[in-house]
C-alpha cells in the first residue's frame, strides 16, 4: 500500500537507506568477527615469541622474531608437576580415550536409535524419555556413584575406565540424534527388508547405517568435541599416566615455578585444541558431501 504513494525521490532515499543499513550490518559483523578472533591471534603470536620479547613487547604486536622453541617445549619437555615430558604423553592418552569412546558411543547410539525408532516395543517411548533425561543430568551429580562403580569394576584410574564413562555419558545424546534421524525413515523400509529375509542386524548394517552418513558426522563432531574437551571426568577418574591432555594443560599452566612461560602455555593450549578444530574442518566437508551424495553420484 505504501509503495503506491512513494515518489521517485522517496524511492531513491529508501535505496540509500537500505545500502547504509546493509553496510552497517557488514561492519558490525566484521567487528564481532575480529573480537572473537582476537584471543586466537594473541595465542598464536604469543606462542611464537620468545619470553624476552613477551616481557618487553606489546601483547597484540606481531612477533619480531618467530621461534618455535615454545612449541617444542610444550610438546615434549614442559613440566606437569614433577614430570617434565610436555603434553605429548597426555595428548596420546586423549587420543586413546577419544577414538574408542567416540566410535563406541556413536555405534551404540545408532543401534539404540534404530531400535527405538524402527522396532517399536512396549515401553520404547519411556526408555527414550529416560535416556533423554540422562542428557540433562549435570556431570557433577554422577561423579561419586561413577567413582564407586569404576572401583567395583576394577577399571578406576585407567583409560578403559574413562572410555566407559564417556560412552555411558554420551549415549543419551547419540541415541537422541539417531532416533530423530531414523524416525523420519518410513517403516515400510524395514518391512520390505523383513519380507526380503533380512534380520535385525542385517537391516541395520545394510540399510540403515549406509543411510546415516550425515547424522554419523554430526554425532562424531559432537562426541569428539565433548570427550576431547572434557576436564571434569578426566581429572576425577584418571591417575598419573592416564590423564588426558586437558588435565595436563591445566597442570602445565598451574604448576610452573618462577617465571611464567606464557609462550609455552599458549602453545600447549593450541596443541590441546587442534584436534577438535581438525575434526570440524575434515568432517564438516564430509557433512556437506554426505547430504548431497544421493542426489549427485551415479
Amino acid at each position: 500500500m505504501t509503495d503506491l504513494t512513494l515518489t521517485p525521490v522517496q524511492t531513491r532515499q529508501s535505496h540509500i537507506g537500505k545500502a547504509v543499513l546493509r553496510w552497517s550490518l557488514y561492519i558490525l559483523l566484521g567487528v564481532f568477527a575480529l573480537f572473537y578472533l582476537m584471543p586466537l591471534f594473541v595465542m598464536v603470536t604469543t606462542s611464537l615469541k620468545s619470553l624476552e620479547e613477551i616481557r618487553t613487547g606489546d601483547l597484540v604486536a606481531l612477533p619480531r622474531e618467530v621461534t618455535f622453541e615454545a612449541w617444542r617445549t610444550a610438546w615434549s619437555s614442559a613440566c606437569t608437576g614433577i614430570q617434565c615430558e610436555g603434553v605429548r604423553p597426555f595428548f596420546w592418552n586423549s587420543v586413546l580415550i577419544a577414538i574408542p569412546a567416540v566410535t563406541l558411543s556413536t555405534l551404540l547410539g545408532a543401534m539404540n536409535g534404530y531400535v527405538i525408532a524402527q522396532w517399536r516395543f512396549r515401553g520404547a517411548n519411556l526408555i527414550f524419555s529416560l535416556m533423554l533425561f540422562g542428557c540433562f543430568i549435570p556431570f557433577q551429580v554422577v561423579l561419586l556413584p561413577m567413582a564407586r562403580l569404576l572401583g567395583m569394576m576394577g577399571i578406576a584410574g585407567t583409560i578403559p575406565g574413562l572410555i566407559f564413562v564417556h560412552v555411558i555419558y554420551g549415549l543419551g545424546f547419540t541415541t537422541l540424534f539417531f532416533r530423530n534421524y531414523y524416525v523420519s525413515i518410513p517403516a515400510e523400509l524395514t518391512k520390505a527388508a523383513k519380507v526380503d529375509g533380512a534380520g535385525f542386524f542385517r537391516i541395520f548394517w545394510s540399510i540403515f547405517l549406509p543411510l546415516s552418513l550425515p547424522i554419523i558426522v554430526v554425532t562424531v563432531i559432537w562426541q569428539f568435541t565433548q570427550i576431547w574437551n572434557d576436564f571434569l571426568f578426566g581429572v576425577s577418574f584418571s591417575q598419573a599416566g592416564t590423564q588426558p591432555v586437558t588435565v595436563a594443560l591445566n597442570n602445565i599452566v598451574n604448576s610452573t615455578t618462577g617465571v611464567k612461560e606464557y609462550n609455552v602455555d599458549m602453545a600447549a593450549a593450541i596443541i590441546a585444541a587442534l584436534p577438535t578444530l581438525l575434526v570440524y574442518v575434515v568432517a564438516g566437508k564430509y557433512f556437506i558431501r554426505g547430504l548431497t551424495a544421493g542426489s549427485v553420484k551415479g
Binding site: P186, E188, L189, K191, A192, A193, K194, V195, D196, G197, A198, S206, I207, P210, L211, G294
Partner: peptide, 20 residues
C-alpha cells in the same frame, strides 16, 4: 516369520533401499 512365508510384497511408498 515373514521371510519363511514364501511371499513377496510391494509397498505403497515402494520402500526401495535408498543407498543401493
Amino acid at each position: 516369520s515373514p521371510k519363511d512365508r514364501d511371499i513377496a510384497m510391494v509397498f505403497q511408498s515402494y520402500a526401495l533401499y535408498p543407498t543401493m
